[in-house]
Design a protein around this nucleic acid. Structure first.
Lengths: 345, 345
DNA sequence: CTGAAAGCGCTAACAA
DNA sequence: TTGTTAGCGCTTTCAG
């Protein structure tokens, strides 16, 4: 049994060193009262010398604000690993949170609804965070009711639910990228264009497919095929294989993200199809990866960094954090034309 | 000003509902004293009915344990985004932390030493976490002294420092993969083999390069080229271009990670070199990505999931957490032979 | 303008 | 066996 008395330096140590009361220290550090400059300086000096920062626990206990934001990611580890999507979102949030001394409490749960619910409940019941960031709204998303129930402030990155309005950050014109992609393919002479979407339970899956279909209609065309995939390479590959072996296979495929596009290209090649010679491919997200591929990936760029930032700022404002600038507008999804799309033969 | 009195349910609400004292609730919930089964049951029922969990802040304030682990990642967002390495590490940690009700507080700072130091200091001074996980030990790593200074328990994922011993998780035989890779290339008839390493400040950079060089010696060979790169695609591409334009260019290159290998392949192709026809390539990590490339990537697999798990368990044991199994052994780096390596011409 | 004192929700001595 | 109580470190009235 070590004698390890923690002996943490506390506010009273600072007060003692500065020769003032603890309440004076508290007020000065938090910029509350008005004190003679000499006192202020001495207190600040003492705090600095003792390397003192207020204990997060004590502050939280007193004021019920933890200065932490929660995020629970419900994607299986291997998919997470495969898809850097979240990392940039998180980095974007961090770049706004860190300078304001907010922390980010991260939980990665698999796609287990119970684990996910448990994670949110713990965050709320244990008062570990002041608010949470949600990503990827789902259809009949249990989180909507759950968070209302938990009275947990939240902002959603993605398409808000109809039934449970919630503050959300979304690109300004979320349909633009998809429209441009369809136009681009039609311009190249493609007439049989397919869409491989993400899982059906994501709200944006339906949205994007609808935009895709509508834009084809606009050109007097019908979707060649539309198939849903989870995000896994295997499933995506199977979907593409199936399409390509069809009697009238598509000459172009739009994918719901870049990793799926890559899996699609891989599957097409296994069938001996050349990209973009036999098949044009469009991705979604514009991961840096896309520029290293051969052919370089034509894709719909999402401004993930700004989405993360905007979500963080939106939350901070909601929490009454002062000096928080308004969330930046998020650049609309933008078609980046590279080498994976070419004239239809 | 809303009247929003928080009105959180507290331990005394539970005590009242169960008709016992608060200390009884505390003890029963924490499995401390011995109580008649009837009392236990009533308390547990009440806690459940009120959906009560102890406030993390109060527990932390009282006992000085926060049940949270910190991690600060010092890689630039775009590199983070490009390289899924960290995501799997984090997922591995989470799978051990979450079931034990531990949280993971994540900070992503760029490669700014001051920001990094500040992040660790805040974690410690504000007592936000009980311990931290470090990754990628660096040469003259300021974190070693800093954490000792801060008296912050820590475990390192990677090669420990000589000068500042610290608990570390590392693969059992960390040289195996590299040796096998060199052997494999030599077997294929390669004689001019190069190595593109990560940044020189990483401890493992020197280690791996030494293993590479030593193993070549074992075969009576000298490294064709060794170049350091940061993790960025541009730098890596430039390094490869330089090597390939040399008078006696390498016929095979080993890279410090898969993303760099991909950047290398891309650069080689831009020069009109075929992989693996003109140049064999070996990566490191075995990201799922590697199997989707053409050619599929030959790589040295790292058991990132187990590294994350082991780090978490090691920390939990150190923190005196009961019922924590010993950290699993981490599978040694293993050469996975796929299509990006072929006979030297 | 400054300081004393009352808790925030919880745990662990100490009493009963 | 169970309950009472004194803080953990901080903020914030409320007196001085």
């Amino acid at each position: 049994m070590a004698q390890r008395k923690t002996n943490r330096t506390t506010i009273s140590d600072v007060a003692a060193l500065a020769g003032v009361s603890v309440s004076a220290v508290s007020k000065i550090v938090n910029g509350k009262g008005s004190f003679p400059e000499a006192t202020r300086a001495r207190v600040l000096w003492a705090a600095d010398r003792l390397r003192w920062s207020p204990s997060a626990a004590a502050v939280a206990l007193r004021g019920a604000k933890t200065r932490a934001i929660g995020m629970v990611v419900n994607r299986a580890p291997d998919l997470l690993n495969a898809d850097p999507h979240f990392a940039l979102l998180i980095a974007g949030m961090e770049s706004e949170l860190a300078p304001r001394d907010y922390g980010l409490l991260l939980h990665i749960v698999g796609e287990h609804p119970e684990a996910e619910e448990r994670a949110y409940r713990r965050l709320a019941d244990e008062r570990r965070v002041d608010a949470v960031v949600l990503t990827e709204s789902r259809v009949n998303d249990p989180r909507a009711a759950l968070l209302r129930d938990l009275r947990m402030p939240a902002v959603l990155i993605g398409t808000p639910w109809r039934t449970h309005p919630i503050p959300a950050v979304e690109a300004a014109d979320r349909e633009q990228g998809m429209k441009d992609a369809v136009d681009h393919l039609v311009d190249l002479g493609h007439r049989r264009i397919a869409y491989v979407s993400g899982p059906e339970d994501r709200v944006h899956t339906g949205h994007r497919r609808r935009t895709f279909t509508d834009r084809l209609h606009h050109h007097g065309l019908l979707p060649s095929h539309t198939l849903a995939s989870d995000f896994a390479a295997r499933t995506t590959g199977a979907a593409v294989t199936q399409m390509l072996l069809d009697d009238s296979p598509p000459t172009a495929i739009v994918f719901a993200n870049d990793m799926m596009a890559l899996a699609g290209i891989s599957a097409a090649r296994r069938l001996g199809r050349d990209v973009p010679g036999d098949l044009s491919v469009v991705g979604h997200d514009d991961l840096p990866l896309g520029q290293l591929l051969h052919p370089q990936l034509t894709t719909i760029r999402q401004d993930l960094d700004h989405m993360g930032r905007a979500a963080a700022l939106s939350l901070l404002r909601h929490l009454g954090e002062e000096d928080t600038p308004p969330p930046p507008t998020v650049t609309p999804p933008q078609l980046i034309i590279r080498e994976s799309t070419a004239k239809a033969r």
